[in-house]
Design a protein around this nucleic acid. Structure first.
Length: 605
RNA sequence: GGCUUUGUAGUUCAACGGAUAGAAUAGACGUUUCCUAAACGUUAGAUCCGGGUUCGAUUCCCGGCGAAGCCA
């Protein structure tokens, strides 16, 4: 049952009955807290056509709804705002409907009849195999993972993919540094086993070593008076690493073998990180397999007149009509640029999975790149061209400013995860009544992991993805206020009540029949009722932050109820039964909403 | 230089064109014979500047100023 739609219909009928006109659409908004009522209908827009004052219109509609709709119990009018309260019977009906609907919050599968696309690919993470994941990757991973879950709840088939950047000059840098500094004369070198380091961290160490040594070389060249630009190019290490890249491309067995070895270390490290943050992929693509793709697309575009050739033989596209620029798509020497690969890779992905919608979760520094990519796909007439979407997100700053890998101000993902878990354990220690005595050591570890990760994920997801955000480590491990642990705690509290109710043989399979509802209970049911809508909006806008905000609102409202009304000590059996059902539904909805963020909720904490 | 994004309490974030701009945190003050106080309540505090569009603008448009990114 859809209360909001029913109410809209009733308002429409009221306006028709009273004034003989039928507005195309009436919109309802939630009533502001300071006023009584749960739904507000704004009458300002009607004043002009009806030539009546907004307050009069509100008064008339309100009265009509009371007399005829059977939905409205009370109303009040403030200027052009008609605030409506619905009857307890309606809310009890809503609660009953939610309670008995096993698929509440999950929308039916998108099928062929739907105009909307039904199958989505979400590509995210995009790690480089020369260094471990960092804070920026975490925002990316959590966004991608959450958006996938939200789309699934919206009834889409979702394929999660990851394109690994496993080749190129930067990969060679760590390889070269390893050859130089990490191996002895016989070629025997450090390994994750010999050092006890995680593979990605070990490789990352050499990437940093390269940069150091390279900087030193440049400094020497500058000292003998070379121009900075020349120095960067002429430094022996740069020469060597470029030579190595050529060898890799020619398939030099020694280089390829080193590349495979080091990458395998990195993948083992990544696997561990992904497992620890609860992120997985259905399919992983490797750039080493795809970087040569796309040249056939260039040929196709040339033949179709989409691209043009310059005198120097380079190939371009004119996108000035789209408000973009002239863009190079193939170099004069016939080698690819970044966009060339992406053209080919996009075709490949569609060919593999037949998705009619593709989403890339990539930082907003690539906004231009994707605008160009999509424009080209449209020009080429790809049938899926209108289903391409760049989920662009802002950089994560530290309170001290921008993260810079060269200056060592990056926040390592593994370190951070460990830190938030430790902080969760610390917070549990400090909690006044947290009774964790019946937890095993292993159970505690699980719990702290759940809470720490919950804090981190929630912290990164509650902010609008589009926006640049500041990551304050101290805030991120906070368990008070607008945080993941606050919501987790609320869930654990409710579960505790339900356990005790069950232990006392209290029945809460059905709601009490002759119940009157407190305001706060009405509010809670109202909130619960909006959950499917929230999921839908979050799916349409690809915005996990909507879900995060919702979960907080729900938890906060429940905590208020919890503080104001008793449950286990309630003497009216009907009321108690209703409150227990309400509690159960709230717990389940919190669990679902947090699940969409990839956050687990504990039964106890 | 061109294009894009962004500017809200001390701080971190909210607000389909709607009411007295909401939260959280930090500050001040309270609430536990009672279901988990990791909770709840009270209090103080903000829309970068200037125009425009209209019943109404944090939101939309134009012009500045500040921050960031991309393209040469």
């Amino acid at each position: 049952m859809d209360i909001q739609a029913d109410l809209k219909g009733a308002i429409q009928r009221a306006i028709h009955a009273l004034y003989g006109v039928s507005p195309d659409e009436v919109t309802l908004q939630p009533t502001k807290k300071e006023f009584e009522g749960l739904y507000t209908f704004v009458t300002f827009p009607l004043t002009k056509p009806l030539r009546k004052s907004p307050a009069d219109i509100g008064q008339a509609i309100g009265q009509y709804l009371i007399d005829h709709s059977g939905l409205v119990s009370r109303f009040n009018v403030v200027q052009g705002f008609l605030n409506l309260s619905l009857t307890d019977a309606i809310w009890l009906g809503v609660l009953e409907a939610i309670h008995t609907d096993p698929s509440f919050g999950t929308l039916p599968a998108k099928n062929q009849e739907h105009a909307k696309p039904e199958s989505v690919m979400v590509e995210f993470s995009s790690p480089n195999t020369n260094k471990p994941l960092h804070l920026g990757h975490l925002r990316n991973n959590f966004l991608g993972d959450s958006v996938s879950r939200i789309l699934k709840a919206n009834g889409y088939d979702v394929v999660k993919t990851c394109l690994v950047n496993d080749r190129g000059i930067h990969i060679c840098k760590s390889m070269l540094a390893y050859q130089r500094f990490g191996t002895d004369a016989s070629g025997r070198g450090e390994t994750p086993e010999s050092t006890g380091m995680k593979g990605d961290h070990l490789v990352g160490k050499y990437y940093v070593l390269f940069d150091k040594a390279y900087k030193a070389e440049i400094a020497e060249l500058l000292a003998i008076g070379m121009a900075p630009e020349d120095a960067e190019k002429k430094a022996p290490l740069m020469q060597a690493v470029q030579q190595m890249l050529r060898q890799w491309e020619q398939g030099d067995p020694e280089i390829v073998s080193l590349w495979q070895t080091m990458n395998s270390w990195v993948y083992a490290g990544f696997a561990e990180t992904y497992r620890s943050i609860g992120v997985s992929f259905d399919k992983t693509y490797y750039e080493s397999n795809t970087y040569l793709l796309g040249k056939d697309v260039i040929e196709e575009g040339l033949a179709a007149g989409v691209f043009y050739r310059k005198p120097d033989n380079s190939i371009w596209i004119d996108l000035t009509e789209e408000g973009l620029d002239h863009k190079l798509v193939l170099r004069a020497d016939g080698t690819s640029v970044y966009i060339t690969q992406d053209l080919g890779t996009t075709d490949l992905k569609v060919n593999d999975f037949q998705n009619n919608r593709l989403i890339w979760v990539v930082g907003n520094e690539q906004d231009y790149h994707f605008a160009v990519l999509f424009a080209i796909m449209r020009r080429l007439g790809r049938p899926y061209a209108n289903g391409l979407y760049h989920l662009s997100y802002g950089m994560v700053d530290l309170p001290s400013g921008k993260m810079k890998s060269r200056e060592g101000t990056v926040v390592d993902a593994d370190d951070l995860v460990q830190e938030v878990i430790d902080a969760a354990a610390q917070a549990a220690d400090e909690a006044v009544k947290g009774d964790l005595n019946d937890f095993s050591a292993e159970g505690k570890a699980d719990l702290f992991r759940m809470i720490g990760l919950g804090a981190l994920k929630y912290f990164l997801l509650k902010v609008d993805a589009q926006k640049r955000m500041t990551f304050n480590p101290a805030d991120s491990v906070d368990v008070h206020g607008h945080t993941g642990p606050y919501i987790q705690y609320t869930h654990a509290r409710i579960r505790s009540v339900l356990r005790k109710a069950a232990a006392q043989q209290l029945a809460f399979d059905t709601i009490g029949t002759a119940t009157t509802l407190d305001d706060i209970e009405q509010q809670l049911i109202f909130l619960l009722n909006t959950y499917p809508q929230r999921v839908q909006e979050a799916g349409a806008d690809l915005a996990p932050s909507y879900i995060a905000q919702y979960a907080y609102e729900l938890a906060k409202t429940y905590n208020q109820l919890f503080d104001r009304l008793s449950i286990l000590k309630e003497t009216d059996a009907d009321k108690q039964q209703t409150r227990l059902v309400l509690s159960k539904v709230v717990a389940e909805t919190i669990q679902q909403a947090m699940g969409l963020l990839g956050v687990d909720v504990p039964e106890k904490m």
